Every structure is written in C-alpha cells, then in structure tokens.
Simulated scan of single mutants.
Amino acid sequence: MIKLLGFSFYLDHTLDQDDKNYIESMKQHHFNEIFTSLHIPEENQALYTKRLQDLLKVAKKNDLKVFVDIDQNSLANLPNELDGFYLRLDDGFSNQDIAEMSQTNPLALNASTLTKDDIKELQKYQADFKNIEAWHNFYPRPETGLDFQWFLKKNQWFKSLGITTQAFIPGDEKLRGPINAGLPTLEDQRNNDRLASAIQLTQANVDKVFIGDPRLSLTYQEEFADYFNNNVLDLTLKANDNIPQDLLNQILHNRPDPAAKVVRVLESRQMNQRNQTLIAPNNNIPRNIGSITIDNQAYGRYMGEVQLTKTDLPLDKKVNVIGHLDTNSIQLLPYITANSAFKLIPKE
C-alpha cells in the first residue's frame, strides 16, 4: 500500500518557524520528499540561494529528499559548493546533457513532453535509466490540467520502460497564487477530495504523489498517513445522527465478498447481537449515496447490519437511515473493496 508521498515548498519567502513546523509535521505523517522551484533572477541570486540553503538544512534535519525544478540559467547561477538536492530539469536541456548528468545523479524529467525519440537519444548517449524519473507538471489555470486517459496511457508507457512516475494533486489549506485554483496534474482532480485523488493516481501507475500547493491541512495529513501506512480509510460523517457510538472511531471492515451497491460492515451484526438490542423501524427514507443504514427487526436475521450506500437506493421500510458521509468522503467509497478497513469519524 505504501507509495512515496511528497509535498511542495516554494522559495517566495524566507523560511520561518511556522514553515519548519509544517515540514516536520509532513515528515511525521510519512511525506518523504520535497519539491521546490528555483528560477533565479540575476539581481536576486544571493537571496534565492540563501533560501534554498535554509530549506536544505531543514530537509536534512528531517531526512527529506529535495527535488529542485530548475532551468539552465538558474543551474549555472548556483554556487558549485551547494549540494544535497536532486534536479527536476525544466525544458531546454539537451538529451546528451541529460544522459551525462544521469550517470552521476538522480534526475527528474518532464513526463508530459518525453517522447520515444527522446528515449532513443538518451539510450544512444548511455543515460542511466535507474537515475531517471518522469515527473508530470501541475497546471495552475483551471481547464488546462491533463486528460485522464492520455495521462494513463503515458504512465503505462513509462512503466513498460521501468521508469518511476510522479504527479501532483492540489493542497487544501493554502493554495498557491496568483490564481489560487489548486495545482493538480489532472484537471478532473482540481476540486476533488485530496485523498481520493491520491488513490486514483496510485491506481494509474503513479509511483510518487506530491502535494502541489504550499499547504496540506493536518486533517488530510492524518488521512494520508492512515491510508498509505495503515491501510485504513478515514470517512468523515456529515452528521452523527443515530449512529451507535461503538461504530465511531473504530476500525471496521467491508465483507470479503463485496456487494455491488453497498459496503456491508462486517462487525455490525455481531455488535448488535452482543447488545441484544431490538431495532424498531425508524427514519425509513430514500438511501442517497453515502447514507449509513442499519437493518431493523423487519429484516429478521439481518437485523443490526450496518451498510454504507455506494449509489442512490430507494426507501426500504426494513432499513433505517442513521447517518450520512460528508461530500468528500463519498468520493472514497469506490476504493473500499473486499476486506477494506475504514473508520467512521465524527465531524468536528
């Protein structure tokens, strides 16, 4: 389940204590690489170099790898003694230059513009493909992010070559200006749940998922850590309603034989049997997608079974609606498969 997670930090300001706290928090939640961009104006060369040095110092303290997006001019302007980072090469480098650099250092190239001819040239110049990764761009302007099917085919090609792939999803706590519309690779993910977006990327042959924007909230940091390290999906409730307390903040599981239209909570009927509770019909309303339901006494031996609806279902007098997932968590339902673990988290 563990995929490599990364985040972005930009050199548009002097690194302060709040930044250090954020970087440490991301590391604690298993984000292991940093992306930054360094296009140095000649008149500000010393300033940007100092900011990069400060970032590298904090990254080293937290055992974080740093990839720097850079063009030829900025690379030439960097002091020779500055090291401890890897390059994400912007357009403008020749394939011969790339091949020579790959023989001594890991490199990230622009995934969207790499072609079969480029690969042939890199092979000709004896590039070390173990040191080459393919990184997609992010797209600040709405409507310009990549098409999913094209993206998928491109990644399948990289996989056939044994090349590591990377892509971006937006942050949520602080978006990067001046457009402030998120920094996704895929246009369809611009306004989606961040964890759902990350999972979709991992299922589309992406090895590294990075947050494109400057900040990811602590709530999402915890959700990412739970999923990518503990294999547990955190589902947030829209309202607690009549959900039994013993279902909240507990690790629950989908059945090993997954149903098409609902998630069947494996532990629920056993819980009800232990409590020996008779469940009367109540709140028998249409079961919209994301509804949390419990079968009442009219369902006989199924009484006490809790389900999460994966699609809109009609009213059933044998089924009580006891709660609903929030809009973002509904986007996580497709990723609950056989034996999947998840938690129902009350909304704060």
Rank of each mutant, 00 (worst) to 15 (best):
S102E: 06
Q103E: 10
T104R: 12
T104V: 11
N105T: 13
N105S: 13
N105V: 02
N105F: 12
P106F: 07
L107S: 09
L107H: 09
A108D: 03
A108Y: 07
A108H: 09
L109Y: 11
L109E: 04
L109C: 11
S112V: 01
S112T: 06
S112E: 15
S112D: 15
S112F: 13
T113S: 15
L114N: 06
D117R: 12
D118K: 04
I119M: 10
I119K: 08
I119Y: 09
K120T: 08
K120M: 13
K120L: 14
K120G: 03
E121I: 00
E121Q: 13
E121M: 11
L122Y: 11
L122F: 11
L122T: 03
Q123K: 15
Q123H: 13
Q123L: 10
Y125Q: 07
Y125F: 14
Y125K: 08
Q126H: 13
A127Q: 04
A127V: 02
A127L: 04
D128F: 07
F129Q: 14
F129N: 10
F129I: 04
F129M: 10
F129P: 09
F129W: 08
K130Q: 14
K130P: 00
N131A: 03
N131V: 01
I132H: 11
I132T: 03
E133F: 10
E133M: 15
A134E: 04
A134M: 14
A134Y: 12
A134G: 07
W135I: 00
W135F: 15
W135N: 06
H136I: 00
H136N: 05
N137P: 02
N137V: 01
N137C: 02
F138C: 04
F138I: 00
F138R: 02
Y139S: 05
Y139M: 03
P140C: 06
P140T: 02
R141K: 09
R141P: 00
E143G: 01
T144Y: 10
T144E: 12
T144W: 09
G145F: 03
L146R: 03
D147T: 01
Q149H: 09
Q149R: 13
W150V: 04
F151S: 03
F151Y: 12
F151I: 00
F151A: 02
L152E: 13
L152P: 02
K153W: 04
K154E: 07
K154V: 00
K154F: 06
N155V: 02
N155S: 08
N155E: 07
N155Q: 05
Q156C: 07
Q156S: 15
W157K: 07
W157M: 05
W157D: 06
W157T: 01
F158Y: 15
K159Q: 14
K159A: 12
K159F: 02
K159M: 01
S160Y: 05
S160L: 01
S160R: 05
S160T: 05
